[in-house]
């Protein structure tokens, strides 16, 4: 079962698609000669800040008072960080951390 209607789904998908395309096309439309310095500045500093925000977003439902104390997520993130430090291989870190997390919640923390 889809969580929302197909029409609502299309609306969200098209908004995300149009916004993404607009960002990609904008420089070619308006910045022919020079790019405003504030835009260049934001382009440099936003990615790091936004990625931090997205990590927080992913962990937003983590509840230290829940039955599992949020341990599966905390351990999963630790595993991702360890794998990253070890091999610096993006796919290995993502796959390894995810499988580790899945094993945790399907076995140790099941139910």
């Amino acid at each position: 079962m889809m969580p929302i209607s197909p029409a609502q789904s299309w609306a969200i998908i098209l908004v995300v698609a149009a916004t993404t395309a607009a960002i990609r096309f904008l420089p070619f439309w308006v910045f022919h000669s020079s790019t405003p310095r504030v835009i260049l500045y934001l382009g440099k500093v936003l990615p790091g800040a936004v990625m931090a925000m997205l990590v927080v977003y992913c962990l937003k439902d983590l509840d230290p008072l829940a039955a599992d104390h949020g341990l599966p997520q905390i351990l999963g993130v630790a595993m991702v960080a360890l794998l990253h430090k070890w091999k610096h291989n993006t796919l290995l870190s993502i796959a390894g951390g995810t499988v580790f997390y899945m094993m945790l919640i399907q076995t140790l923390f099941a139910g």
Binding site: P47, G48, M51, A52, L54, V55, C58, L59, P72, Q73, G76, V77, V80, A81, H84, T90, S93, I94, G97, T98, Y101, M102, L104, I105, Q106
Partner: peptide
């Protein structure tokens, strides 16, 4: 059912990108 927990791949993706940027 075996895919339970696969949503963590999004967290893992962002953690890796974050660490790489750091």
């Amino acid at each position: 059912e075996y895919t339970r927990g696969i949503e963590f791949s999004m967290t893992a993706l962002f953690v890796v990108i974050f660490l790489g940027q750091w």
